[in-house]
Design a protein around this nucleic acid. Structure first.
Lengths: 220, 220
DNA sequence: GTCTATATACCGATAGAC
DNA sequence: GTCTATCGGTATATAGAC
């Protein structure tokens, strides 16, 4: 894994710790994220969340007023984090393609909290009609934010010949759909099955003559 | 949409009608599929399913003994259908890349029952720990079947230089992950947002020098 | 601080009415 | 055939014990 991707993950984790200072609450949130991602909002029982965090069922209610509140909090954190991840990538030193490469590496990393949250968002949006209204609205505003950074990044790459021509918004939607699909596959399959390297994932974005390392041997 | 993709969809729908001869049961299944896909197994209430099918809550139990039974039946149909869709594509006349092209077109078609079932399978597997054991086992056997047809298809395409070199199983997993991610995006977004054409989706699979028409001007 | 015990509500499934 | 009423089980959230 590249230095830059590790930096993205590190920044993301720092942001998470700053937004949730209490370690016990972080523990509950991290475990709840996992349970929600695997069972969905309605399928996840408070007892499950408590058990994976090492607490009794009733104890959770010292920190959160309801199951919906936990879910909404996670959606809020994911909303912040998803936008931030793309923003951080833009702030790195490199070409547009390289930035997307590092972002992809970080999003597909097995251990990243960013990825954990993406997984949750994915399940949550798939079952969107059953989630609390507040979480839905947060998710909607969140859905826009990554695109605000990603679409200009694609246009920049297109201008440099690094990224294939075409509607930048369409390519961005395709990118996040792809990442989402790979995230689901990661959840539902056991470790050890073959998984695509970043180069394979990004081939649909590459400009003609691109060599997969950010270099273009056609015209600029 | 191409002739061949329409044929795939038509074959699929015929298979569905043969497997579920009773029109009332088909109606329940189609509506239940939609509700399950959007709310998940635990989030979907029998009342919802009955309402969308135009029945009262209790009436459903004249046709199915339980909610789990409806879900399991749908998984079974999807299991059959997913494998069949790939099989049908293999039986068409054309190059491996063309067959994958037509399959993709059919799977991403907004109106195909095949796609509806894929959407359900996706949610169901994402929330896999909450689903009945029987459905899980069917889903597991189903998960293998599309690969049994798809992996050889990729290898054939690689031998012809149409498909990029690399682990065929990995490429197959990538393909279905991509399709799944695009399916989720289709569910959760309203119509009118830009969506990638088949050519964009399949670029990650193309052999070097592929011109999108099955012709190759270089080796892999 | 953390757990155990309980009330309250909801939903799946049944049975009986029309 | 189709619906309404109801029973029983399960899960959320609370309150009180240690």
């Amino acid at each position: 894994m590249s230095e830059q991707s590790k930096l993205l993950e590190q920044r993301f984790n720092e942001g998470f710790e700053m937004m949730v200072p209490d370690a016990a609450i972080r523990k509950i949130i991290l475990n709840a994220t996992d349970v929600f991602a695997r069972k969905g909002l309605t399928g996840a029982k408070i007892k499950d969340i408590a058990a994976t965090a090492g607490f009794s069922q009733g104890f959770i209610y010292n920190y959160f007023p309801s199951k919906d509140a936990i879910f909404t909090k996670i959606v809020e954190l994911a909303a912040q984090g998803a936008g931030d991840a793309v923003k951080y990538a833009c702030e790195l030193q490199g070409t547009p393609y390289q930035k997307i490469y590092w972002l992809t590496e970080a999003l597909l990393s097995p251990d990243s909290i960013a990825m954990q949250h993406w997984r949750l968002i994915m399940v949550q949006t798939a079952t969107s009609e059953a989630i609390p209204e507040e979480a839905k609205q947060i998710a909607q505003s969140m859905a826009r934010k990554p695109f605000e950074y990603f679409v200009p990044l694609i246009k920049e790459g297109q201008a440099a010949g690094e990224i294939v021509a075409g509607d930048a918004l369409m390519l961005a939607i395709t990118y996040f759909s792809f990442i989402q699909g790979l995230g689901i596959t990661k959840i539902q399959t056991s470790a050890g099955i073959p998984f695509p390297p970043v180069e394979t994932v990004l081939r649909f974005l590459e400009g003609k003559g691109h060599d997969g390392k950010g270099n273009v041997n056609g015209t600029v």
